[in-house]
């Protein structure tokens, strides 16, 4: 699904990622853990194609095709999704309108049929039930005035609607109480499928109690210093990151 080969990235001329190699197979769930400032969010944003993040060297292959030069929307069309750590508030852009524009943009780019307003609202309402989300959030501006938890639910809602092949969830668990965490985990687990891969970027092992990863990687100072199975997360919980630095 995804091959990251010796990727070096700098932001504002400061090296953040220093030679990342990572391979994600179809249907796998990978957790990327690490302390603050280790480069986890940078990796997530680079995959989504955030401008100003310079790929100094290396290559990112998605289903065999290089992503290096692609615009964010082209990556979305290929099937990539980034769940934002800090979802952006966009007053004046209605949430439902935004969701439908995104859905139909992807359908159009894939030469699939677009949905009209009535059919689309049926689809969204169904997905919202899974997330215990009130329909009032469709009427507001995108994330406008949403609490931290509501914003994260809205990210997961977008993922459920857009059905990506690869979802990169950046700190989706941060700032959530335990009930919200369970709802989010339920949404993510619903997305698990043999054809779909998920990357969870997180500080804590807590999320991994609800979404069991196949692999865990530790990122420190821009490098993956250790990879292992789900038991690695438990070890980190016990010992911290110090012993790996």
């Amino acid at each position: 699904m995804l091959e990251i080969k010796n990727v070096n990235v700098s932001v504002n001329q400061q090296a953040i990622l220093r030679g990342i190699d990572l391979s994600i197979g179809k249907g796998e769930v990978h957790a990327i853990m690490g302390p603050n400032g280790s480069g986890k969010s940078t990796l997530a944003n680079v995959l989504a194609g955030k401008p100003d993040y310079t790929l100094d060297s290396g290559e990112i292959l998605f289903e065999g095709a290089t992503l290096n030069e692609l615009e964010p929307e082209q990556r979305a069309v290929l099937g990539l999704f980034l769940g934002f750590q800090y979802p952006v508030e966009i007053p004046g852009v209605n949430n439902l309108y935004f969701l439908r524009s995104a859905y139909n943009s992807l359908q159009k780019a894939r030469a699939a049929s677009e949905l009209d307003a009535l059919d689309f609202i049926q689809l969204v309402k169904e997905k919202m039930k899974t997330l215990d989300m009130s329909e009032k959030y469709l009427k507001r501006g995108v994330n406008e005035g949403f609490s931290g938890g509501e914003k994260k639910r809205n990210e997961i809602l977008q993922m459920l609607v857009l059905e990506p092949k690869l979802a990169v969830l950046d700190e989706t668990d941060s700032g959530l109480d335990i009930d919200a965490l369970q709802v989010i985990a339920k949404g993510v687990n619903l997305m698990r499928a043999p054809e779909r891969s998920i990357i969870l970027v997180t500080h804590y092992q807590r999320l991994l109690n609800y979404i069991e990863p196949d692999y865990v990687h530790v990122l420190i100072n821009g490098k993956i210093v250790k990879s292992g199975g789900k038991e690695l997360a438990l070890e980190l919980e016990e010992k911290g990151y110090g012993w790996l630095a």
């Binding site: 989504a48 401008p51 964010p72 929307e73 979802p87 966009i90 995104a102 992807l106």
Partner: peptide, 17 residues
């Protein structure tokens, strides 16, 4: 807002739209 623009694009909405 560049961040909002990236957010919309990352959902598949082209830059001009």
């Amino acid at each position: 807002d560049a961040t909002a623009l990236f957010y919309l694009q990352s959902r598949g909405i082209d830059k001009i739209t």
